[in-house]
């Protein structure tokens, strides 16, 4: 047992962090939220060149994957920099296409997903009760994605379609996440009970990637808050010297640092209970850190203009994306496994 990232994985995280730091992601998010996609597409290409999407694509389809641990490493950095776009959906769509019994759709779509030429989005309509799969009723960034996958499930079988272009976006609490109603119809790519199995496995990956992304969002919120309370002075001293402030940040650190091993551990086991545990813990830690960050920044943190808002709203959105906290806890309880 050696439950630590190796030197190569740490170097991958560092290089992504450096790439994204240089990319001025807050201005990219603001462009993206207005529907201006040029800067976002350019950043997407660089993320693809770094190999992120290839990690979700199997080697036989010109990818490097599947590499779940490296994907969690990447998504922590993507979350840390609030990178916009259908990141989770693209890697999940790639995993789903690769798992279909018919290799046709994989051969057709995966190469361009791996290179970053195309983006994918994915929706899942409500599955049968007790199925344990999350609902994804809105197509994230469906105006930017050219591969728009929709999954509908009956008790007997699942159907995967390539949906037509969407209508107008719905207003979203996180302006960086552009939500669209599910376009109906489109070409049927696959149908049958095996599709349902592939969807189940792909959705597990979506949940894990969202957990890692949320952890990154939380880490950024903590870093920004620590920097702020060190320089913001009241009563003649930095507010970060007050115990009431310190202890809130210590609790944020505690939550995030106990989510981190769950995220990496779930990537190693891909056990549904582990993935659900990682999702609920990382998302709740990020969400709690967002609340602390908002409180410690005071009124400036409550403004849309200040960049902190880009992470605050994402922490809220990710909490329910690909599985609510309660849904995840139900999966943990239904697993009979003794850890």
């Amino acid at each position: 047992m050696r439950f630590l990232l190796d030197a190569e994985q740490r170097a991958f995280a560092d290089s992504l962090n450096a790439l994204l730091t240089a990319a001025d992601t807050p201005s990219v998010v603001r462009d993206w939220s207005r529907g201006e996609r040029k800067s976002g597409r350019a950043l997407w290409s660089r993320i693809a060149e770094a190999g992120v999407f290839a990690l979700a694509v199997p080697e036989e389809c010109e990818g490097l994957g599947p590499r779940p641990v490296e994907l969690t490493v990447a998504f922590i950095e993507l979350g840390r920099h609030a990178v916009p776009g259908p990141l989770v959906e693209t890697t999940t769509a790639a995993a789903l296409l690769a798992e279909l019994p018919d290799p046709g759709p994989a051969k057709r779509f995966l190469p361009s997903l791996a290179t970053g030429e195309t983006m994918a989005t994915l929706t899942c309509t409500p599955p049968p009760a007790g199925h344990g799969k999350p609902t994804a009723p809105y197509a994230l960034d469906a105006d930017a994605a050219t591969i728009r996958l929709t999954v509908s499930e009956s008790a007997a079988a699942a159907e995967l379609r390539l949906a037509p272009p969407p209508g107008r976006p719905l207003p979203s609490l996180d302006p960086g996440r552009r939500l669209f109603g599910v376009p109906s119809g489109g070409e049927v790519l696959a149908v049958g009970p095996q599709v349902g199995v592939a969807v189940g496995r792909a959705v597990l990956r979506a949940r894990l990637a969202t957990a890692a992304q949320a952890l990154g969002v939380g880490l950024a919120l903590l870093d920004r808050s620590v920097a702020y309370v060190r320089q913001r002075k009241q009563f003649g001293v930095p507010i970060g010297s007050f115990q009431a402030v310190k202890h809130q940040l210590a609790d944020a650190e505690l939550g995030l640092e106990f989510a981190r091993p769950l995220v990496h551990g779930a990537a190693l086991t891909m056990d549904p209970a582990d993935v659900a545990a990682a999702k609920v813990t990382a998302c709740e830690a990020a969400h709690a850190t967002a609340r602390t960050a908002l409180q410690l920044h005071g009124a400036i943190g409550y403004t849309a203009e200040y960049d902190l808002s880009l992470w605050l709203t994402k922490a809220r959105a990710l909490r329910t994306a690909w599985g609510t906290p309660d849904e995840c806890r139900t999966v943990v309880l239904s697993g009979g496994r003794r850890w």
Partner: peptide, 16 residues
């Protein structure tokens, strides 16, 4: 312990 985390892990200034 929270003081230790804040000061030694997060680098916040010592205070009263």
């Amino acid at each position: 312990q929270r003081d230790i985390i804040a000061e030694r892990l997060l680098g916040l200034p010592k205070g009263r």
